[in-house]
Design a binder for these strands. Structure first.
Length: 474
RNA sequence: GGCCCCAUCGUCUAUCGGUUAGGACACCGGCUUUUCAUGCCGGUAAGCGGAGUUCGACUCUCCGUGGGGUCACCA
């Protein structure tokens, strides 16, 4: 029997989640789900100085919005609880002691200022900084008041296999005595994640490519502890829309919940993020989260980075909107369309969906584009219609159109169109359809007159035509 | 600067030695719509450079070049 797949997403609570973090979570989640495995949400809160109040609930809400669910985690517990690193200090101490006993860890005799000076020196000489160049010859027992450093057992170059990148390697410069436990008693990421992944049985580690450089350190630690490392899955970077730098918060990476606020669909967001670094291989671009999980494979994760393209996101969102059934479209639109009845909105729905990329856009166009459905501005109707130097022509057409509409089928814009067009074709479309739309909407630019008739309904259409005919006669 | 990673249209990508290098976004044009939007049809646009391997390279190897990452008591 195959080993059960266990993946995790382990963010630090230092603020909101942006697309980079969410994409990592998404891939780890998809891989676990695809294999009926376990997905864990762990919080890496070992840097108390950078911690931002409220981050954890925010992270949880972000993941939940996207439909990324976990089997074990901070909020729900699980067999490997706790899932908050600050509550797992005893584990780190245990393994730290093992390393000390093996002679693979020692108390750092230098102050932070001294280490900083070493680093400045290396930088000035354009050299990579290596702490082990300053490794003390004699060590005192670690009493917990200083940091505890890993003593790399063997300085060598590493070659390892990455599930995405294939064979990777690094020179000996990548190997150094790094801090295991900080002087404040908390472990570093470098140490903690290895212990947690071991204790939680994690089989696959998904993370972005900035960790390639530190992989030899991890490998050395795995060896020192006699651990078989999990499968390493390196994700490609997400690049900022302009320039070629990696997308980060300071390059305008948005809070993922900002997209929700803007009216994006979560499944569109998942679709977009999934394709930013992965591709199923065919020509299908619109997929549901379920389809993505089904199609997801590590082999098809890309090596090279991709730029964030919000225009594509907009298009993906529109495609997902169009695929929704009308009932859920209606529910999504309602908050933006107060004052419109459900029945009216249902008829208006196709017109609205055609014109927007996100539901959120309705917040800005509601007043201008769909206003005529509530009340047409009478003075505007007259101003335009009477500009025509032959109002009796308009009157003749409206009278005829009204006659046609008496027997028209109002069940769809197409049906109405089929009724009116034969007449319009013989009389000149512009001459006929123009006064019709003006009399109904009072707007020069709006949807086609057939849709207007359909949306307004028979009674309202007749009332409006009658009113304008009356004015034209007098 | 050391170490490392990456490289197909403007952007996201398909191709896993033999293709007129395909699709999508964006852009441009046409049709439909009296206008807008949608929809449909069409168009512009790509293998970073140089060696090598091979009957044959976008695809494999090497060297350049370019971009990125990393060199924390941050993750």
């Amino acid at each position: 029997m195959e080993k059960k797949i266990v993946t995790r997403f382990a963010p630090s609570p230092t603020g909101f989640m942006h697309v980079g973090g969410v994409r990592t979570a998404l891939y780890a989640w998809a891989w676990a789900r695809k294999n009926n495995g376990t997905f864990i949400l762990r919080i890496e809160d070992t840097d108390k100085a950078r911690e931002v109040e409220g981050s954890i609930p925010h992270i949880i809400e972000s993941l939940k919005w996207l439909g990324i669910t976990w089997d074990e985690g901070v909020d729900i517990g699980g067999p490997n609880a706790p899932y908050l690193q600050s509550e797992r200090l005893s584990s780190y101490k245990k393994y730290a002691q093992i390393l000390i006993d093996k002679g693979y860890a020692y108390a750092d005799p230098y102050s932070e200022a001294e280490v900083a000076a070493f680093r400045a020196e290396a930088e000035a000489e354009k050299r990579a900084f290596l702490y082990r160049d300053h490794r003390p010859t004699t060590t005192t027992p670690w009493d917990g008041t200083t940091s505890l450093r890993f003593k790399v057992p063997e300085i060598k170059s590493y070659t390892w296999t990455d599930a995405v990148r294939g064979e990777l390697s690094a020179g000996v410069e990548a190997l150094d005595d790094f801090v295991l436990i900080k002087s404040d008693g908390y472990p570093t990421y470098n140490f903690a994640h290895i212990i947690d992944d071991l204790e939680m049985g994690v089989t696959h580690i998904m993370r972005a490519d900035e960790f390639i450089a530190s992989t030899p350190k991890f490998l050395s630690l795995y060896e020192a502890l006699g651990i078989v490392p999990p499968v390493l899955v390196t994700l490609p970077p997400i690049l900022a829309p302009e320039g070629n730098k990696k997308l980060g918060k300071r390059d305008g990476a948005k809070d993922i919940l900002e997209y929700r606020k803007e009216g994006y669909l979560s499944e569109a967001m998942v679709n977009f993020l999934a394709f930013l670094g992965w591709n199923p291989g065919g020509e299908v671009e619109i997929m549901t989260p379920e389809e993505i999980v089904e199609a997801f494979t590590i082999e098809r994760i890309h090596k090279s980075g991709a730029m964030l393209n919000e225009e594509k996101l907009l298009w993906i969102n529109k495609e997902h909107m169009k695929r929704k059934d009308s009932a859920s479209q209606l529910e999504a639109i309602k908050p933006y369309m107060s004052g419109y009845g459900d029945e009216l909105l249902m008829r208006l729905l196709p017109t609205i969906i055609d014109r927007i990329n996100t539901y959120g856009e309705l917040a800005s166009i509601e007043e201008s584009e769909f206003r005529f459905f509530i009340a047409r501005p009478q003075t505007e109707v007259e101003r335009v219609l009477f500009k025509d130097d032959e109002p009796h022509v308009a009157l003749r057409h409206l009278t005829k159109v009204k006659e046609l509409l008496e027997t028209a089928d109002f069940s769809s814009p197409e049906a109405i169109k089929a009724t009116i067009m034969p007449y319009a074709e013989t009389e000149g479309k512009g001459n006929v359809l123009w006064p019709l739309r003006m009399s109904l909407s009072g707007q020069e630019k709006s949807v086609d007159p057939f849709t207007i008739c359909y949306v307004l309904g028979k009674d309202e259409v007749f009332a409006r035509i009658d009113a304008i005919c009356h004015t034209l006669r007098s």
